[in-house]
């Protein structure tokens, strides 16, 4: 589902060039739940944005569902992202002036929205947010906000979910709900790439990759461990 091939990315920093990613290669199959771990500044978020078609690397390519994401035009890539990729962020990034339902539906603006409302209602029900559908983000708890963000990410039936520290601001109970939801998404055939510091969260993953200074140093599978370069 996701192939990351030798992707490198550097940024200009105050103390010179920062090499956020260095020839990182990674693949996530459909139905696979992969956790990415690493210290702060190791390049985890950069990798996630690169995988989501939001940040083009200096080198390498990213293939999602068989299509080279950065070979597309910007508009085509936006539509592709809207239909195939879902994002979940640590700070939720809900739109403050939209209700819970509208926050979920906002994802339909990038696609043909046929049936979006029904799907939104089903997702809210599944995440236990139906009775909060008319509330605004400021009226929700952090756990509820993350569940709304999760519903938004899954509205258009993506094939790949990219989650950046989704449990970082949550209490254990809400964290478990979110992780279980991600695991179920993978069990239903979707691919999940989870960036996390949380060792417990990583335990739910099929694989865990470790990033250090922009390099993928370990890719731990249940049966084997490989080093990447």
């Amino acid at each position: 589902m996701l192939q990351v091939e030798n992707v490198s990315k550097s940024f200009a920093g105050p103390a010179g060039e920062v090499r956020a990613l260095q020839a990182v290669s990674l693949s996530v199959a459909a139905g696979e739940f992969v956790a990415v771990r690493g210290a702060s500044g190791s390049g985890k978020s950069t990798l996630l944005l690169a995988c989501g078609g939001l940040l083009q690397g200096d080198a390498g390519r990213v293939v999602v569902d068989g299509q080279d994401v950065y070979a597309m035009s910007a508009n085509r890539r936006a539509s592709f992202r809207a239909g195939r990729i879902g994002f979940v962020f640590q700070r939720f990034h809900l739109v403050p002036y939209l209700s819970v339902r509208d926050n979920v539906l906002v994802a339909s603006l990038g696609v043909d929205g046929t049936g979006s409302r029904q799907r939104a209602e089903r997702l809210l029900e599944r995440l236990g947010m139906t009775d909060r559908a008319e509330h605004f983000p400021a009226q929700l708890s952090t756990g509820e906000r993350q569940r709304v963000a999760l519903a938004r990410a899954m509205l258009n039936g993506p094939k790949l979910l990219l989650a950046d520290e989704p449990t970082g601001n949550l209490d254990p109970e809400n964290g478990r709900i979110v992780l279980r939801c991600l695991a179920e998404f993978a069990e239903d055939g979707g691919a999940v790439l989870l960036v996390t510091h949380d060792a417990a969260a990583a335990e739910l993953a099929d694989r865990t990759v470790l990033l250090e200074k922009g390099r993928l140093v370990t890719d731990t599978r249940p049966e084997a461990t490989t080093a990447n370069g």
Partner: peptide, 16 residues
């Protein structure tokens, strides 16, 4: 700006 970033992330085009 955060809202714009998220809207772009969920697939809104620049024209939108």
């Amino acid at each position: 700006s955060a809202e714009i970033g998220v809207l772009r992330a969920v697939g809104l085009r620049g024209q939108q």
